[in-house]
Amino acid sequence: MSKVYTQSLADGITIGLGYLPVAMAFGITAKPLLDLLSAGLMSALNFAGAGQFLTLQMLNNSSYIAIIIAVFILNSRMFIMSFKINYDLKHLDFFKRFLISMFVTDESFAVTSRYPEERKTFIDYFVTLFISYVFWIVFTVVGYLTGEVMSDTLVVASGIALYALFIALLMPSVRDYKNLVVAGLGMGMHFLFKEIGLASGIAIVLAMLGAAWIGLFLDLKDKNWRSVS
């Protein structure tokens, strides 16, 4: 197997491991509410961690319209992430970008965003995204079928997996003070926007855009300073 495949395969499995506890938790939570086919279909077709949990939560006491609007707001951040991925891959043709974009998630966005130039290829992205997608579906079904026999402690402990992934991705870039400020502000703004009661999706989008905007501001200031000194 070529190096490209093994690297992307490893990345896909890493994201997949992060999904594992979340997907299982989804399967377990869905069990009293949905039949296996619906739960599996939801993971296969919606592929939206938080969105799927939100759907389950609202299923009993909200109208379908309310669910659709809530999920739409929650997932609006995907537009920004997919936009960035499409920009990074703008040398690829329409069909390939279309195929990749269908599988964009927070995690795959975060992982692929630090791929160097030579890995900005269709195969690199697609393998990473598709492997993680398969994990999501498989472990939804596994959770649904075997949830009760799993060690609770291990399932709870694996809740750290996605956060460990995000933190490990963040670490190398915070050596640059601007990145440190942007990440810190992202955290602070998200916390603040949630505290003042904004809907989760809106809080995420505003914090993301706000923090990135500060990054742009710091960047411009840096450049001006360099050009006068």
Binding site: Y87, L170, N179, G186, G188, A207, W213, G215
Partner: peptide, 24 residues
């Protein structure tokens, strides 16, 4: 483009906190 380049870092911050407090 510069703005877009900061989006991943901003997103990581947003995705880590405060979610990590309720992760386990």
């Amino acid at each position: 483009i510069t703005f877009l380049n900061y989006v991943p870092i901003a997103a990581l911050g947003v995705l880590i906190f405060p979610g990590v407090l309720t992760a386990v």
